[in-house]
């Protein structure tokens, strides 16, 4: 696997809606820009070999980095695969939609739920929103949130950006009634 760069973004929100957020709300993203393993091969019917060669390694690489960047236990998390214009969205999905990838993050974060995801194809510098949900109960409404990311010079047409996101809390100023109140 050729990794071109590793990007870290950390947001620390101190105020929202004109009111203080204390302690500051933290959200971290770590993204790896890699060569699309299936670049230049035409339509590959069976993606298994490329998945086996990359997905677990990517999960193992990114999981500790995003938790280290967050500097706090994760309460919500999500993932992303942004495919350069020459690839298929299926290529990005292949890398992030297997347990081989996600289990590393679940284990590192003591999480149990499936990771919400964005997978899309776009030009170099495309902005993308990573959805995050609670790490043990995806129905916890306070923790539904997104973080927007952009790597100015990625993905190139033959690349994929694979990212993990983690939040140390729910939305700043979250104040919606829980799902249970409507059931």
């Amino acid at each position: 696997m050729n990794i071109r760069k590793i990007v870290t973004v950390v947001e620390e929100i101190r105020s929202e809606g004109g009111r203080e957020v204390w302690p500051p709300a933290r959200v971290a993203v770590v993204a790896a820009v890699i060569d699309n393993p299936w670049a230049g091969q035409g339509f590959v019917p069976d993606l298994t070999a490329g998945i086996d060669a990359n997905a677990s390694d990517l999960g193992a690489l990114l999981s500790p980095l995003v938790l280290e960047a967050l500097k706090a236990p994760a309460e919500a998390y999500g993932k992303a695969a942004i495919v350069g214009l020459d690839g298929e969205i299926e290529h990005g999905s292949a890398l992030i939609h297997t347990l081989k990838f996600g289990d590393h993050f679940r284990k590192a974060a003591n999480a149990t739920t499936l990771l919400p995801a964005v997978e899309k194809r776009g030009p170099t510098g495309v902005a993308f929103d990573i959805p995050l949900k609670h790490i043990t109960d995806a129905s916890i409404r306070s923790h539904h949130q997104t973080v927007e990311v952009r790597v100015a010079d990625a993905p190139h047409p033959g690349e994929i950006v694979v990212a993990l996101a983690a939040a140390a809390q729910g939305r700043p100023q979250q104040r919606l009634a829980p799902l249970s109140t409507e059931q």
Binding site: R4, K5, I6, V7, V9, I13, R14, S15, E16
Partner: peptide, 17 residues
């Protein structure tokens, strides 16, 4: 810092170019 809404860190490490 009451005038501060948020702080954003961006960091990139180039492994290959």
């Amino acid at each position: 810092h009451p005038w501060l809404r948020k702080l954003v860190l961006y960091r990139e490490a180039v492994l290959t170019e």
